[in-house]
Amino acid sequence: FFIGFPLLLLAYLMNQGGLTKRGRVMEGIFWFVLLPLIFVLILSMANLSWDELAVRSWCGREMLNGSILVFALMHPIEFVWFYRGDMKDGPIRMRSFAGLMILFLGVFASTVGSLGKKLTMVDPEPVMSMAQGVAMPGGIMARLDLFLIAFWIVGVFCVFSGYLFYGNESIKHAFSKGRIVGLSLSYGGIYVISPWIMTTFATWIRRYFFVFIYGNLVIGLFFPLILFLMWRKEQKDEKI
Rank of each mutant, 00 (worst) to 15 (best):
F2C: 01
P6G: 09
L7W: 10
L8G: 09
L8S: 14
L10V: 15
N15H: 02
G18F: 06
L19Q: 13
T20N: 06
G23P: 08
V25E: 07
V25Q: 02
V33Q: 09
L34R: 02
L35W: 04
P36C: 10
I38P: 01
I38W: 10
I42M: 13
L43T: 09
L43M: 07
L43I: 08
S44I: 07
M45A: 15
L48P: 04
S49Y: 04
S49G: 12
E52W: 09
E52I: 00
V55M: 10
V55N: 02
R56A: 02
S57L: 00
S57E: 11
G60P: 05
R61M: 10
E62C: 03
N65W: 14
G66L: 10
L69C: 00
V70C: 01
F71M: 08
P76F: 14
I77D: 06
V80C: 02
W81D: 11
Y83D: 03
Y83A: 04
R84H: 11
D86H: 04
D89A: 11
R93D: 14
R95G: 02
R95H: 03
R95P: 00
S96P: 00
S96N: 11
G99M: 06
M101H: 04
I102Y: 11
I102W: 12
L103G: 06
L103S: 09
L105I: 12
G106M: 08
F108Q: 05
G113V: 02
S114V: 09
K117Q: 13
P124C: 05
E125T: 11
E125Q: 11
P126R: 04
S129C: 01
S129P: 01
A131S: 12
Q132N: 14
V134Y: 09
V134R: 10
G139W: 05
I140E: 04
A142W: 04
A142S: 14
D145P: 06
L146D: 02
F151K: 04
W152K: 10
V159I: 14
F160T: 08
G162H: 12
G162M: 11
L164F: 15
F165W: 08
Y166C: 09
G167I: 07
G167T: 10
N168D: 06
I171T: 02
H173R: 13
F175D: 04
F175H: 07
F175S: 08
G178W: 04
R179M: 05
G182K: 05
L183K: 10
S184C: 15
S184D: 01
Y187T: 10
G189P: 10
I190Q: 08
I190F: 15
I193K: 06
S194Q: 13
P195A: 12
P195M: 11
I205L: 13
F209R: 08
F209P: 00
V211F: 09
F212T: 08
F212M: 04
L217F: 14
V218D: 03
G220V: 06
G220E: 05
L221T: 05
F222V: 15
L225C: 07
L225Q: 06
L225M: 15
L225R: 05
F228C: 07
L229C: 12
M230T: 05
W231K: 11
K233T: 03
K233M: 09
E234Q: 14
E234A: 15
Q235H: 01
K236Q: 12
D237L: 13
E238D: 02
E238I: 10
K239L: 12
K239M: 05
I240E: 05
I240Y: 01
